[in-house]
């Protein structure tokens, strides 16, 4: 799980062009959107593409997106359960 979380953080930094940040700046359980990392709806689309491209997981139910992409931890949990 630790390796997956580290890999996810690296991928998030890359696909979202978070140039000024390191993986240490992303708290594993902190929210990715709004008050947390401050990501927005375009970032959400990038994360959906990331999930499908890198992990082969398609999000069929858009309503679940809010919970899946709440934090790096919730993303990692979802990948572990569905891969």
């Amino acid at each position: 799980m630790e390796d997956l979380i580290k890999k996810l953080k690296e991928e998030i930094l890359e696909v979202l062009n978070l140039e000024d940040m390191d993986i240490e700046d992303i708290e594993t359980e902190a929210p990715l959107f709004n008050d947390g990392l401050g990501l927005d709806s375009i970032d959400a689309l990038e994360l959906i593409v990331l999930m499908e491209k890198e992990y082969g997981i398609k999000i069929d139910d858009p309503k679940k997106g809010k919970d899946i992409f709440y934090s790096v931890k919730t993303m990692a949990d979802f990948i572990t359960k569905n891969q």
Partner: peptide
């Protein structure tokens, strides 16, 4: 590269 699937939105927009 991705056979017309999985397009990243930012460069397109």
């Amino acid at each position: 590269d991705d056979n017309e699937n999985l397009l990243n939105p930012t460069p397109f927009i």
